[in-house]
Design a protein around this nucleic acid. Structure first.
Lengths: 181, 181
DNA sequence: CAACCCATGTAAAAAGTTACATGATTAA
DNA sequence: TTAATCATGTAACTTTTTACATGGGTTG
C-alpha cells in the first residue's frame, strides 16, 4: 500500500492536519495520488498507532490535529522507497465504452470525449500555472527543484498526451457524423 | 463499477469461458483494464444471477463454461455506456518516491526508473506488433477498425509518453551522479 | 442569521488482492 | 510419468467508496 507513504512524504514537507492533507490530495498532489478525507483520517490514526507520526501541539484551533513525522516513520518511508516494485494500474472506463462502440456500432460517445478533453485541458492549465509560478525563472535550479519539476512534467505530459488523443478520436467520430448526415 | 461491463463487451465480441477472459485481461485488454481470475469468476456468477449472461452449451470439455450475453446484458451495457461520468484514477507510487527523493535528498531511484522505462518499451513493442498485425495494411479501414485502432493508439501514446518521460528524468539523475562523482 | 468553509470522524458496502484448493488434459 | 497448461472455484483480508454525522468559526 502506498497511501501511508504518500502521507509521510507530505508530512515531511510540512506538518499538517488531516484536513490540510485532504485538500492537497484534491489539488496539487491529486494528479498522482487520490484519497478521500475518510481514508486519510483512518490512515493517520493507524500511523500514529504504529509510531510513525505524532500529534503536534495544535496551533490555536482546539479541534485541529497537526501531525509530524517521527524517526520510525522516516525510516519506514526510506525502506519503502528503496523497496520499489509496484506497477501502476491503468483502468479507464472510457476505453471500455469505445470498445463497446466498436463492437455494437456508433454509441454517441463524442460528448463524453469532449468532456474528457475539457478535463485534460483544465488540468493542463492548472499544471502550467504551477510550472510558471514555481519554475518560471529558468534553469538556475537546484536538485530539489529539478526533481520536483520532473514530477510536474509527468502531469504535464500526461494531460497533453491525453488531450491530443481525445482530439484524434473526436476527428474520427465527427468525421463519420458528417458523412452520416 | 466497470468490470461487468468490460466482461459484457468481451463476451459480445465472442462467447468465452472465465479462463479465456482472464487471459485476455492479462494481455491485449490488460492495458486499459486488469482483473484477476478470481474477480472474473465471481463477477460472471453475479452476472448470470442477474440474467445478463447464460452458460452456453459447452463445447467438448465438460468443465469449461462458455458464457454468452443475453438481451438484458446488452441493454445494461448500452445503459452504462450512455451514462458515462467516471474519471479514471491515476495512482503512481514511483511519483511518490520521486517526491520523497526531492524532499529527503538523493534516494538512488535511477534503477527504478530504468525498470519503468524497460516496462514501457516492452509494452510499446507488444502494442506495435498488434498494430502491424491488425492495422498494418493502411487506411482502407471501416468504422470498427478505425475505433479499435483509436483504442490501441491510447496504449501506444501512453507507453511512448511514459518512456520519454523516464528518459528525461534519467538524464537529470545520471547528470547529478556524474557531477557527484 | 444563513451560508460556507474548517475539521474530524463512524459505518457499511463495494471492489480488489492474496492465499488456498482441486482436478482434467496435453505434450515432452 | 511428470510437468505445464487448462479450468474453476472458496475464503480471508485489504483497500476504496459512499453515505451518514457532528459541530465550531467566519463573513456577508
Amino acid at each position: 500500500m502506498s497511501l501511508p507513504h504518500a502521507l509521510l512524504t507530505s508530512l515531511l514537507e510540512r506538518p499538517s492536519s488531516g484536513y490540510d492533507l485532504a485538500r492537497r490530495f484534491d489539488s496539487s498532489m491529486g494528479f498522482f495520488w487520490r484519497a478521500s478525507h475518510q481514508q486519510i483520517y483512518r490512515e493517520l490514526a493507524r500511523m500514529e498507532q504504529a509510531g510513525w507520526v505524532r500529534v503536534d501541539g495544535d496551533s490555536g484551533n482546539a479541534r485541529k490535529k497537526v501531525y509530524a513525522v517521527l524517526p520510525a516513520g522516516r525510516a519506514e518511508l526510506l525502506r519503502w522507497v528503496a523497496a520499489g516494485g509496484e506497477v501502476p494500474v491503468v483502468r479507464d472506463p472510457l476505453l471500455i465504452r469505445l470498445r463497446a462502440d466498436a463492437i455494437l456500432g456508433p454509441l454517441d460517445l463524442a460528448d463524453q470525449l469532449r468532456d474528457r478533453l475539457a478535463d485534460h485541458e483544465r488540468r493542463l492549465a492548472a499544471y502550467e500555472a504551477i510550472a510558471d509560478r514555481d519554475f518560471g525563472d529558468g534553469d538556475g535550479a537546484d536538485r530539489t527543484a529539478r526533481v520536483r519539476r520532473a514530477i510536474l512534467d509527468a502531469g504535464l505530459r500526461f494531460e497533453r498526451n491525453g488531450a491530443q488523443w481525445c482530439r484524434e478520436v473526436l476527428a474520427i467520430l465527427d468525421d463519420e457524423a458528417r458523412a452520416g448526415a
